[in-house]
């Protein structure tokens, strides 16, 4: 194994230039338009960028996979001013997935409390919105609404990257209307 790697040991910088980036052409017109629209709103309302803290309270992990996808080269939503942050202390938005498992109840509340005001809550996915298949189980609260004040619901099993962006745009509208 060692040999296989070190035989062809190369300088990493040159590897970077060797990669075929030019073969990667991706333009999803609808997604781009949505993103640019969202960016305008974010610029106006939040002063250029918003920070999101995710709390998974019992989803089946597919919403998380789509959220990770949003940060990958295909979608790259950071260019629209949207960041996922490591701490709720840095967050404008608490994004919650899952039907709020009882075991996660305390952690969800604490995460919400740790975020500075003004703060907004998004419920993402059918489970979080209270329409998923787990809502009647003994082990869950049933929906995020029952625990936190939800500002925007993004339903779907799971919502697609476009759905998530549309939901974010909806939240911006809602905040604007309030003001």
């Amino acid at each position: 194994m060692r040999e296989m790697i070190y035989n062809k040991m190369a300088i990493p910088i040159s590897n970077l230039f060797k990669r075929k980036t030019e073969s990667f052409k991706f333009k999803d017109k609808e997604f781009e338009e949505l993103g640019l629209k969202l960016k305008k709103e974010v610029d106006k309302i939040f002063g250029k960028s918003i920070s999101i803290r995710l709390v998974d309270t019992g989803s089946d992990n597919s919403p998380e996979i789509e959220l990770v996808n949003l940060t990958t080269p295909y979608y790259d939503i950071e260019r629209f001013g949207i960041n996922f942050v490591a701490s709720p202390r840095h967050a404008d938005i608490i994004l919650v997935t899952g039907p709020v498992a009882l075991n996660m109840l305390e952690a969800l509340k604490k995460t919400y409390e740790a975020a500075p005001s003004p703060k907004f809550v998004i419920a993402l996915g059918d489970d979080a919105c209270g329409t998923g298949i787990f809502k009647d189980s003994y082990a869950v609260v049933g929906s995020v609404e029952k625990v936190l004040p939800v500002d925007m619901k993004i339903p779907g099993n799971p919502p697609t990257p476009e759905d998530i962006l549309k939901g974010m745009l909806g939240l911006m509208q809602k905040i604007k209307n309030k003001e």
């Binding site: 998974d56 309270t57 019992g58 989803s59 089946d60 992990n61 597919s62 919403p63 998380e64 996979i65 899952g98 039907p99 498992a101 009882l102 075991n103 996660m104 952690a107 998923g132 298949i133 787990f134 009647d136 189980s137 003994y138 082990a139 869950v140 799971p158």
Partner: peptide
Amino acid sequence: WKHRGVEKLSEGKTPEEGLLISESICGD
């Protein structure tokens, strides 16, 4: 932490409803 009561939830369900639960155990 994410315990959702999958096993209990499926009790008393029809096999077709059970299929939906089995799909939602883990996204990938």
